[in-house]
Nucleic acid binder design. Structure first.
Lengths: 147, 147
DNA sequence: CTTTCTGCAAAAATTTTGCACGGAC
DNA sequence: GTCCGTGCAAAATTTTTGCAGAAAG
């Protein structure tokens, strides 16, 4: 998919730009991040890596994901009680709407987000740097199914 | 504060209702949860507990927080890269603003949240059941410190 | 050839669990 | 007296770090 290739290239370019070496392991991790839509954990990435790099160290995956995150090319998604997940396809914060029945995820374009950030700045004096915004509910399809 | 006492009572009642025993340790953990505005971690709770219960086990805190969570009386707040925090004062979902410097967490009252839920319902047809909404930024104090 | 990167293993940090004793009811 | 809860220690997870050798540029 074109999108995956674009993300792959963007990540490689960012690495080059910051004079990081392009090791095969690193490139393989980037490939997995750019192709995975399911927000893989370090363990997921490591497991998929074994195919091409048997014996690759999990520490290497941690180090590289951390590096890529520091370059702003992957979004970290932490849930309580489980290991951290990563989104390398859309590295910038964005809201999600998740259907709790069919697990479908959509990325809405919320006009009210900008307004909300303004409200926060005004009310609390915080300078908003980033956010995470996930709504969980029942999608139209699932609502009609068991109405 | 009245609010703290109400929360304390609500948690105790819920325990009684489900036939859980009211041990001193358990009551002390509930007291801390009901009084803490800063969303303490298990470690935080455990440290504060030492005052009244020297030698209290961290495992006991874990077990009790888990129990109280299963009764719906505490909100679990997980962030990537650090231990899970808990809010016993507002056990239902609500937005957070987290300072990325001093880690302070505040609970804003956002008028625009209702509007955002409406926007989601209108635009996507989702029936919003729950959410998690966390903004990360720099609080006024930390902004002035290194301005 | 220099510097970074990797693998390994150990250490940290966080959370869970088994078991015997003790305390709430 | 009966269970449930606690303390302790060990185990299980998840993530970080030190170091020596390997490899990218």
């Amino acid at each position: 998919m074109q999108e995956s290739r674009d993300r792959y290239k963007a990540m490689v370019d960012k690495l080059k730009e910051h004079n990081h070496k392009l090791t095969p392991q690193r490139l393989a991790i980037i490939r997995i991040l750019s192709e995975s839509k399911e927000h893989p954990s370090v363990e997921d990435i490591s497991r998929r890596l074994q195919r091409d790099f048997p014996g690759v160290s999990e520490a290497t995956v941690y180090r590289n994901v951390l590096l890529i995150k520091s370059l702003g090319e992957v979004l970290e998604i932490g849930f309580a009680g489980e290991s951290t997940h990563y989104d390398g396809r859309k590295p910038h914060p964005h809201p999600h709407i998740v259907c709790i029945k069919c697990r479908k995820i959509i990325d809405p374009d919320l006009q009210s987000l900008k307004e909300m950030v303004e409200e926060i700045t005004e009310e609390s004096g915080f300078e908003v740097v980033t956010y995470r915004l996930d709504f969980f509910g029942i999608c139209p399809g699932c609502r009609t199914m068991n109405a």
